[in-house]
Nucleic acid binder design. Structure first.
Lengths: 349, 349
DNA sequence: ATGAAAGCGCTAACAA
DNA sequence: TTGTTAGCGCTTTCAT
């Protein structure tokens, strides 16, 4: 094994310097592309570069980080990488980051505020140059603090009222409003709202949209129609089971689901109990998925994914890192889009 | 902002030592839980601990890493985090890792061998204590090399013939054999095989299973029935479109798909062209998904996910790290399971 | 155009 | 029981 992969951990700039009879400084400069700037002779530059390549030198990130107090690494904190919406986001950010020679340190917060806080601390200890986070959203102090400490923070998906951290969010309110208006236009008045984590901005916004739609149509909001408490599959399944049990009494005709995993849970429960969409019950869901159109009943969804969201988040963070953010670009709101398929029955017909 | 979050980056053990008039060593020892061992007085221990907490001290990972040449971090290289199979794996590994106070450094290789190599190098520079990788699978030298250099490597999902790197794989051969036998039992003889990346072990194994099933039933293998070249959605879509165009000629009656994303692509193509499953075409696919049962035609699948796979991978890596692997646990093969639903038509009936 | 040396924060061998 | 000190690999100031 003396192949090109033989990357000896002992190859340091010191080693190269000694081998070549050149100073450590010069080696460092050349290897950082500072050769010309320091007018190091072309010959020396070449020599150093070649030797480094031949020995398969690669810098020790720890030494570098310790010295520079930064890491060319960006922290990414997501609630659940298993949720394709976040997975796509992660992939997008990673691809962009690679282009710019940044690495990504990924943490799952699992929608647990303690883990989120721990992760922030962890990332700071790793001296990440910045953090992109889809926060649980119930507390913000640790985020503000990190930002003040000099670790730029960009929020994604969820934001905090009255906080001036830069963020990219979806137009959850509008999306929800549109979806529920569509349900109402189709004659639905008893609409169950399957929510995610109560108190998060996403959830707040979507509920607000739901309520606004009701209000616009003079339908009274019934708290009993608000169901569930997280964005997971089980949550949708359990809540749906409950809904089904009481459906004769409640006369619910439609479900508005706030997330793709919730929706899958609902679908499973409905299927088990032989309830057909849209004939027995209508359904509209947040989060367009590759399979939305391929389900037993093609699903009407609110799409709020944007191919470039990773790109945008990274750009925003970079701007923040270089302190060249101007107020107007500190907030980006992604448009949502209602995709109509066959999962809502027209009750007016 | 003088809250508990006021974590001053300048709080080092040196700082604490000076403030307390104690040596740096003692502080280091106490903060590493070595106080009792060095018989440092209870009072001092308490004092140091309290001060550290009060100042919200947290160690500089770079200094630590530089000194110790390790990082309490594990590298995870996955082809595509967007593929739920890998996402679940990542989540499982991360959860386990957190319990053991390891961090996860995640890299997407995007099924690109250059990125995979870069990632290995990167992770080594980060002095990760070990690497868990689902390799592209076409080259192994860089993996062997990393392992020899002292960075333990555990392979997951795909392995290499004749290499003694520890690995966890699925029983792809058996799974494929069973699925194809099932198709044949249902009277299918012209079975299109939609493959992923040619040459990867997963792919090799699944093709081998496919061929074996044919052979067992004295059906001649037709290379023209082997389609596609990666595990993505587009691949499935494009190959399916081609298949549809020639279906009158080829008389293909069933598709065996090697991955969930391929399958979604197939489903989309079929839907666009109005081809119904299983009446016009039968389909069976690797990778059980939450939605498999909820598709327009509930999909028969080969499930090869195991809830504990992350756990197992981490355990294996840890064993490797502590050199206490014994031969018999160096390879784990996950059982696959055929889940029969409605996507295969019985041609015999 | 090139180099010496200090120091980033930490651990551990050695001293006392 | 506690402290002194060298050194991990790197960048950068200051000298030459």
């Amino acid at each position: 094994m003396s192949s090109i992969f033989m990357q000896n951990k002992n190859v340091t700039i010191k080693f190269i310097a000694k081998k070549l009879g050149i100073s450590i400084t010069s080696v460092s400069r050349v290897l950082n592309g500072l050769g010309p700037q320091y007018r190091i002779s072309h010959k020396t530059i070449e020599l150093i570069t070649n030797t480094a390549t031949k020995l398969n030198y690669s810098p020790n990130n720890f030494a570098k980080g310790l010295r520079l107090k930064k890491s060319s690494t960006i922290g990414l904190i997501l609630p659940d990488i298993t949720n394709t919406w976040f997975a796509q986001l992660a992939l997008g950010i990673e691809k962009e980051a690679r282009k710019l020679h940044y690495n990504i340190f990924l943490c799952n917060s699992n929608d647990d505020i303690r883990i989120e806080k721990k992760s922030i601390e962890l990332l700071q200890n790793w001296m990440v140059d910045g953090i992109i986070i889809a926060p649980i959203g119930l507390e913000a102090e640790h985020l503000v603090s990190a930002s003040k400490k000099g670790t730029p923070v960009v929020l994604i998906d969820r934001f905090f009222e009255g906080l001036d951290l830069p963020c990219i969010t979806s137009n959850d309110f509008e999306g929800s409003l549109e979806a529920n208006q569509y349900l109402i236009d189709n004659g639905h008045k008893k609409i169950a709202c399957f929510q995610g984590i109560s108190g998060t901005s996403t959830n707040n916004q979507r509920i607000a949209g739901y309520k606004k739609a009701l209000k616009n149509n003079k339908i009274l909001f019934d708290p009993a129609l608000l169901m569930g408490d997280n964005f997971g599959f089980d949550n949708g399944y359990i809540a749906a089971k409950k809904l089904i049990k009481n459906i004769k009494k409640t006369k619910i005709t439609a479900i508005f689901s706030m997330g793709n995993q919730i929706t899958l849970g609902i679908l499973k429960a409905l299927k088990e109990d032989g309830i057909k969409i849209p004939n027995d019950l209508s359904l509209i869901s947040f989060d367009e998925q590759l399979y939305s159109d391929l389900l037993f009943t093609p699903l009407s969804t609110v799409s709020h994914m944007n191919e470039n969201i990773g790109d945008m988040a990274l750009k925003m963070l970079l701007a923040e890192m270089h302190k060249k953010t101007n107020a107007k670009q500190k907030n980006i709101v992604l448009k949502s889009k209602l995709i109509i398929r066959d999962s809502v029955k027209n009750l007016n017909a």
